[in-house]
Design a protein around this nucleic acid. Structure first.
Length: 467
RNA sequence: GUGAGCGUAGUGUAAUGGUUUAGCACGAGAGUUUGUGGAACUCUUAGAGCGGGUUCAAUCCCCGUCGCUCACCCCA
């Protein structure tokens, strides 16, 4: 890649006038499909990150951070060359050293790589890991479909029992319910290496005979990825899907038992689920259990149909991936949940119910206001003292007028404003103003800390009495 | 990737081929009160995504482009 040239190209856009500053000819613009997370949205992110960390602690999943950049062939080998992600959605490039790299389009391959590379086989099995971070796919953007999105991902490597699948589903369920989203899980089994080929063949046979009535996409898919035919949305194909041989019937005995155990497990945990015989995931590495998380439409309690919005998350078992990467044969399973979509859903619920579902930022207890140059400097020191004493504090030292400062104190909902002016500085006093009632008193500045503490406790006590 | 719709200050919107200095509300800043917030009032702030065409005249019509949205595709 002619990287240097590109840099020159970009530099050309900077107009350099004979005098004054160099200006970009066009205003800088967000890259298509990317999104800024602005300050007013951070509370959602903070909250979700804290829940994710809590779930990690509660279930003994350890956090892992793998790099955003990996070798391209990790994904072409791991996810399958024919998959959409690899075929047309990957951000890949050649770096200055000539390495062919890609921005990660998903987490599992990188985590599997790390498992092998760091000899995690020799850790007590299974190894339970979670990751949280950005993924990149070059799709056509739409609402809830970005080119950079964030996922929370959980993986259990080194154990093939169905309880693991059940526990993973529980974890995803747990995140969603603790955010007040009512999830519905769709589950299926796509068999294993020993039973899937036979099923695939019977499916090909079934569809070959009916090739003429298939849509164009399905004709193409017939040779590449037959399983995908099962989730075609074209009406004429729907009829064929309904009569197609269902995969459950051709599962081998172990796969069948595994699937039943998973269903029994999530049933016992009272996780709402629907078996979906047409659920097929887009990546080649899946085996046996596959599942997706949807949100129920909350408008109607009795409604069990998933909202029309796309899935919030999904995952499954990938018993062959580690071996494909050259490790020992190691069963594994995992899932990912899309954070942007989850936040969209929370906001939708907040709008519908008119209530706030996510804890807001705490209001400052004390606003520090000042008047005059000397008091301003003194107030900055005072601010440090208050922080050290453990108060939550706010101030804007760049403002000079008391009015402006009180407006700010009001806007940020401070309980108390303390005011330090020339007069107070001279006689060693300070004004304490209760923002709710507006009453204020002048006290000896030496008594400030205990007085504030008493007042804030009093306010708290009253609140408790009242509530 | 294919098809369609949309694009007016920071946000939400109004009207319009010339009548307009592009209106209103919220927001932000300053003030009325040169040391006191939540109300009111005054002032200020800031806009047609970009490029081209048609026209005497374009924010408005046409084309292109960029972006967003929707459907398909796929998924988070």
């Amino acid at each position: 890649m002619p990287r240097i040239k590109k840099t020159e190209e970009a530099t050309k856009q900077i107009e350099k006038p004979s005098s004054g500053i160099a200006r970009l000819s066009k205003q800088p613009q967000l890259v298509k499909g990317m999104k800024d997370v602005l300050p007013h949205d951070q509370l959602y992110w903070d909250h979700i990150r804290s829940i994710v960390a809590k779930i990690g602690d509660d279930y003994r999943f350890a956090r892992i951070d793998t790099p955003i950049v990996e070798h391209l062939n990790l994904y072409t080998a791991g996810l399958g060359k024919q998959t959409d992600i690899v075929e047309k959605e990957m951000y890949s490039f050649t770096d200055q050293g000539g390495d062919t790299l890609a921005l990660r389009p998903e987490f599992t391959a990188g985590i599997a790589r790390a498992y092998i590379e760091h000899g995690m086989v020799s850790l007590p099995q299974p190894v339970k890991l979670y990751a949280f971070g950005p993924l990149f796919r070059h799709e056509k953007p739409q609402e809830g479909r970005l080119r950079q999105h964030t996922q929370w991902n959980c993986e259990v490597i080194g154990e093939g029992k169905p309880v693991i699948d059940g526990q993973l589903i529980l974890l995803g369920y747990k995140l969603l319910t603790s955010l007040h989203i009512k999830p519905l899980v769709q589950v299926n089994s796509i068999g294993c290496r020993s039973c899937r080929p036979a099923y695939r063949e019977s499916l090909v046979e079934y569809y070959r005979a009916r090739r003429a009535s298939l849509c164009e996409d399905c004709k193409r898919r017939l040779n590449k990825n037959v399983l995908r035919l099962l989730d075609c949305k074209v009406e004429t194909c729907q009829g064929l899907i309904a009569k197609a041989p269902p995969i459950v019937d051709s599962l081998c005995e172990p796969c069948r038992d595994h699937f039943i155990s998973v269903l029994e497990c999530i049933d016992e945990l009272e996780i709402p689920y629907q078996p979906n015989p047409h659920l097929v995931r887009g990546l080649d590495y899946y085996s046996r259990t596959v599942f997706e998380f949807y949100a129920l439409m909350n408008t109607d309690e009795s409604d069990t149909q998933p909202a029309r919005m796309a899935a919030l998350g999904g995952g499954g078992r990938y018993d062959d991936l580690i071996e494909m990467f050259g490790g020992q044969s190691t069963p594994a399973a995992g899932f990912g949940i899309g954070i942007e979509r989850v936040i969209m859903k929370i906001k939708e619920l907040e709008r519908a119910s008119g209530t706030k579902l996510i804890p807001r930022r705490v209001n400052p207890e004390i606003f520090v206001a000042q008047l005059g140059e000397q008091p301003k400097r003194r107030a900055m020191v005072l601010y440090e003292d208050l922080l050290r004493e453990g108060f939550t504090v706010a101030a804007e030292f760049a403002k000079d007028s008391l009015k402006a400062q009180l407006e700010l104190a009001n806007k940020c909902n401070a309980a108390i404003t303390i005011i330090l002016g020339q007069k107070e500085l001279l006689d060693g006093s300070i004004i304490i103003r209760n923002m709710e009632g507006g009453e204020q008193e002048v006290i000896d500045i030496k008594k400030l800390i205990p007085t504030l503490r008493r007042k804030l406790n009093g306010a708290l006590g009253e609140q408790q009495k009242g509530g």
